[in-house]
Design a protein around this nucleic acid. Structure first.
Lengths: 206, 206
DNA sequence: TAGATTGTTAATCGATTAACAATC
DNA sequence: TAGATTGTTAATCGATTAACAATC
């Protein structure tokens, strides 16, 4: 229903708003939020309108009200359990990053095919053997997974995730996963990002 | 000149084509490449046309010719030196990922403000003290940087990068950098990605 | 030939941008 | 009031999609 880009921007607005709130700011203008997302103020107004938020001239938008609405949108009152598959360098970095628990997103368990890693607790989440994944996912009704396995294992692991009932995958493997359209896949493709970056920073930018 | 999305897709095409070549495939059809990028065959044909590549009915496109053209587009014959700032979990993961040297992108040096890390060689790249960054960048004519410092230090580090002559930044810090328009910034915002993922995998997807 | 794919043009779609009266 | 910002509509822009004759 809500377009992908709007969802992405709402997430960024929220981060900015929480910082603003911590600093004691009580109201913001659309152009301040626009700076945050490299967008325009009209775009921000449209996003917030879609969310049912209204502002006023002179005062702009109420920070607390916006946070409340965006929190509702993302349903942050409910903790979402997520699993992570593949304890390599990136996997470990993500576990470390999310252990803070500031977010409503919680990496409840991790999985690896390396027996040496199994049963260890890395950054608050216990590592299980990959074969236990299916059972864990269905028993705990997990819907979202972070996939950090090597490229060569990505597709077969994704298939397991799908059959276990996972509906969304954040894919760090440099491979395009072939999955049915009802599974939402978000690719984080760093090699591609760097190639793009090098291209545009080498003076070929329009 | 070339749109961002096309550049991103070309990078993906190349990866797919190299795999195909290794498997002995000599020609591909637009729909095969379309699968790779979750796009359409018409889109692929347009991208390749923009690149000056032409195919033929029945045979499609010649794999070697495409690789040649895309390599030329990305200028892969020339090794591009890139620096990395911030040896935390993500920084280390990236160094490990790029040490293979398969790509034309080479992380020549890394920088950190922690004296303990300085002078160590982590995954083929020596770590320097952050204060040496400016000198290193200008002396070695570096144009591209990967920024993995904590959010609190991101903006000030980005300012240093800019003043040193960096033109492109891959930003892993969950902060929107404020930089002039001539600096190309690519954000890798994992928190946002996960929030988006959770939203769309929780049944709210259109 | 028949059939799938090509290059290329035209139509569609959606998002962004511009514009402006209403508001505080 | 004057001025900046708001909600909202209309115009623009660009990318995607559809269409189709030409090709091997």
């Amino acid at each position: 229903m809500t377009p992908e880009k709007t969802v992405a921007r709402l997430s960024l607005y929220r981060r900015f708003l929480k910082l603003a709130k911590d600093e004691g700011t009580s109201n913001v203008y659309s152009h301040q939020l626009a700076d945050m997302v490299r967008g325009t103020s009209a775009q921000v107004r449209r996003d917030l309108m879609a969310l049912g938020c209204s502002g006023s001239p002179q005062k702009g938008y109420d920070v607390n009200e916006l946070i409340k609405h965006i929190d509702e949108f993302f349903n942050t009152s409910e903790v979402v359990d997520v699993i992570l598959v593949g304890i390599g360098n990136i996997g470990r970095a993500l576990l470390s990053y999310f252990k803070s628990g500031k977010s409503h997103i919680n990496i409840v368990a991790s999985f690896d095919s390396d027996r040496q890693k199994v049963d260890r607790v890395i950054n608050n989440s216990k590592c299980y053997y990959i074969e236990e994944l299916s059972k864990f996912v269905s028993e705990n009704n997990i819907k979202t997974a972070i996939l950090c396995v090597p490229a060569s294992e990505a597709q077969q692991t994704a298939d397991v995730l799908m059959h276990s009932g996972i509906k969304g995958i954040l894919n760090f493997a440099p491979v395009r996963l072939k999955l049915p359209a009802n599974i939402f896949v978000e690719d984080v493709d760093i090699t591609m990002n760097i190639e793009k970056l090098v291209y545009f920073s080498s003076g070929k930018r329009k």
